[in-house]
């Protein structure tokens, strides 16, 4: 797993719990052309953040999803 993937997973787990890995894998597979989450690179972040914002918003609400997005953007 890339260092960036580990950091994104760590931040996401705070908000989405132990299923964060599955969540992120699904986002990269569905919206980043089948990319495996553990191969995540800096250039993928903008697109990932966009979809994390949308999908996490449905799970934990917009406010918390925005907090998560800001944390991932800060990585």
């Amino acid at each position: 797993m890339s260092q960036l993937s580990e950091h994104v997973l760590k931040e996401t787990t705070v908000y989405l719990g132990p299923a964060s890995g599955k969540f992120l894998e699904r986002q990269t597979q569905s919206h980043l052309n089948g990319l495996q989450f553990d191969k995540l690179e800096k250039q993928h972040l903008d697109e990932l953040v966009k979809w994390v914002g949308i999908s996490a918003g449905l799970l934990i609400g917009k406010d918390k999803a925005e907090e998560l997005v800001k944390k991932i953007q800060g990585l």
Partner: peptide
């Protein structure tokens, strides 16, 4: 969704609960 914004122990409980619910939904 869990809609509780607090900085005390109840806020911590709400965050934990929110995390649990999110994981449950994903699974």
């Amino acid at each position: 969704m869990v809609n509780v914004q607090r900085n005390d122990e109840i806020g911590e409980l709400a965050n934990s609960f929110s995390r649990m619910v999110a994981s449950l939904k994903i699974m």
